[in-house]
């Protein structure tokens, strides 16, 4: 994670977990009660996605990123519990960016609205917690060369603000 810098284009291969609004709410409630999480977050990456149903024979349906900002309120606690990275789309709050610096984490963006294409880079998918949440359950995904861009690195840099500054024109 320390090698990655904001603006780097990467291809991610390996296991990630999925979670979005409802799963995050449950994870945090579990932490608040001092109980053990149903998944081990140590060293893990969470992909913010609620996939579409798979066609017969397909691994998964369309599976692009959802807006990360909605998970800002939960992310710092999960980083404190060992989470190293997240994949989503859109701005992160100052508090989350600070948590990335503290816990050596990285936030990646995948291109929003390219879920059909991104699904082809997911080679296996299984639900591992909260199956009752359907698309919002926690899935374990095996990624193969999944394209993403580093937006926030462990050094506090933010691609969204620097990139905008570069192309901004006044007037």
């Amino acid at each position: 994670m320390l090698d990655l810098r904001a603006g780097d284009a990467v291809e991610i291969s390996g296991v990630v977990l999925t979670a979005r609004d409802a799963a995050h709410q449950r994870l945090i409630e579990t932490l608040d009660r001092g109980e053990v999480l149903p998944v081990d977050l140590a060293g893990q990456v969470i992909y913010y996605v609620g996939p579409a149903p798979a066609r017969p024979g397909a691994v998964i349906g369309s599976a692009g990123p959802t807006t990360s900002g909605r998970m800002d309120r939960y992310a710092p606690a999960l980083h404190a519990a060992g989470l190293r990275g997240t994949i989503g789309k859109g701005y992160r709050s100052d508090v989350v960016r600070q948590a990335l610096v503290e816990h050596c984490g990285v936030y990646f963006a995948a291109v929003g609205g390219s879920g059909a294409l991104l699904a082809k880079r997911i080679v296996s998918a299984e639900v591992i917690a909260y199956p009752d949440l359907g698309t919002e359950a926690i899935w374990r995904l095996q990624l193969d060369r999944f394209p993403a861009i580093v937006v926030n690195d462990a050094y506090g840099a933010d691609l969204y603000s620097t990139a905008k500054g570069e192309y901004r024109r006044d007037g």
Binding site: A52, V111, G115
Partner: peptide
Amino acid sequence: GKQVLTQLLENMRVAEVERVPMCQD
């Protein structure tokens, strides 16, 4: 930016051919 737009055009092609939604939402 150009790369993103190309990726999104490719996404439209894949969705149409495979009859899957362009976006999971």
